[in-house]
Nucleic acid binder design. Sequence first.
DNA 1: TCTATTTGACTACAGATGTAATCCATCGAG
DNA 2: CTCGATGGATTACATCTGTAGTCAAATAGA
Lengths: 128, 128
Amino acid sequence: MKNSSIAITEAESRVMNALWKQAPQTSEEIVGTLTGPTDWHEKTIKTLLNRLLSKGAISVQRDGRRYLYSPELRREDWRKHESRSLLDRVFGGKVAPLLAHFSQHEELSAKDIAELRKLIDAIEKKGR
Amino acid sequence: MKNSSIAITEAESRVMNALWKQAPQTSEEIVGTLTGPTDWHEKTIKTLLNRLLSKGAISVQRDGRRYLYSPELRREDWRKHESRSLLDRVFGGKVAPLLAHFSQHEELSAKDIAELRKLIDAIEKKGR
DNA sequence: TCTATTTGACTACAGATGTAATCCATCGAG
DNA sequence: CTCGATGGATTACATCTGTAGTCAAATAGA
């Protein structure tokens, strides 16, 4: 029962995010999306796409002379993996300290709070 | 207003955690603490201590022939840094999706929920 | 058909990271 | 005083990452 966690580096995650937002995309489109937010050279992005391909995080489908790229790794799975990693590495595996942390540092907007409250209600209702 | 974020690698964080738990400690004590949880060679741990020293994350104080190591970087600062990093990298900078994520994956215990509710109440009271 | 261009494939290369091994000064046991 | 053991300092080295550059095949114009 491997949780199929492919490791995605910081730079690669920018590419994945572009693909999660929309897929499939040609490399040209991806380059377009990332130019501005990053100052990466087109070649750099191509390299990242290839690395992601090698590790199975994305897949391609030929479209004439070019490729159409699509994410293979699911965003939710990645988020789960990264969250758990932070939790274990930084907060000893426990959620409460993490939440306490966010709140103490006032990183929660009013909207976050409202959202949170809704969430909790939902969870409690479900649990009951 | 730099948030003085020293980058700590995964391996280094294990050493920091040992020091945050108790300080100061000799390298021998640290090696003792980490042997078991990790299968690192003593030399490896010494290397990590030196790298942490170089980057100012810890400090030393001579004690005869040996050193006593203490954390210099504060755990809270590091946690803040790492949390923000996860948030930005993985959740587009917003807390709510992160929380939604944890809840969806049922990683919140009843205790976490209670804790959370208390936190929210406290925050709202303060904000008002 | 010949050629400049475009796109992907392969190569490059420095700095970070994981994981030690070796070197050197000193201390404690003979 | 002499020498092995200890602890820190320095060096090593394969990978991983960030960031491109070069090569080669196919295409689209001239």
